[in-house]
Amino acid sequence: MDLTLKIWRQASAGEKGKFVDYQVQNISTDASFLEMLDVLNERLVREGEDPVAFDHDCREGICGACSLYINGRPHGPDKGITTCQMHMRRFKDGETIVIEPWRAKPFPVIKDLMVDRTAFDEIIQAGGYVSINTGGVPDANAIPIPKRDADTAMDAAACIGCGACVAACKNASAMLFVSAKVSQFAVLPQGKIEARERVQNMVAKMDELGFGNCTNTYACEAECPKEISVSHIARMNREYLSAKLVSQKE
């Protein structure tokens, strides 16, 4: 199939960017979206041009590195997958595809389609863990956990930290990402001990970094490649409100 690509090119964080049109020919419908970009890049290198930079790694939908905003949707038109799992059979011959980087103040563009998502790491560092050290822990079966709770925790923990929720949200809010971590620990006995401090610290960090607010548009859930539910946002809201209400003065 032949396609027209409209790709955001930006040499570095400080420089101005613009859209550049590229034509690609004879793309197999079985190729993945990133393989299509590989084909383009290989050609650009041969022609002595600068290839398009984009983040990618595992190419099986789990590392969370790939991050393209394709035709107005993070990770492209299909539900429940990442860009690397998107296959070209999903597009029509002759189609024009607009490819943009994630857009959010806390995700500055590094080059072309690559953005800096260390803001997510900072949020995790603010409390996305159970404060135990290696060793000296009880037997794994010492605390039974209801299957339903373990499953809910797993639903939340499936987050790959790709940032599609932020990219999709009209407010560039990171609530789905943050709530996935808060929710995972909120339903598990291991995480309950620090639950109040965790939710307050993580939310404060998220706000400090300049993410937008949640207005419950639910675009995040619709675009999340792991289909993480907004019910986790509600759980986080609940946790946050009750933590604010009952936590003792420092």
């Binding site: 009880p138 037997d139 995972q184 291991q190």
Partner: peptide, 13 residues
Amino acid sequence: IDQCVAQGVPFAR
């Protein structure tokens, strides 16, 4: 396994 469960890894139950 003990360590990971204590960290909140949601193993199947």
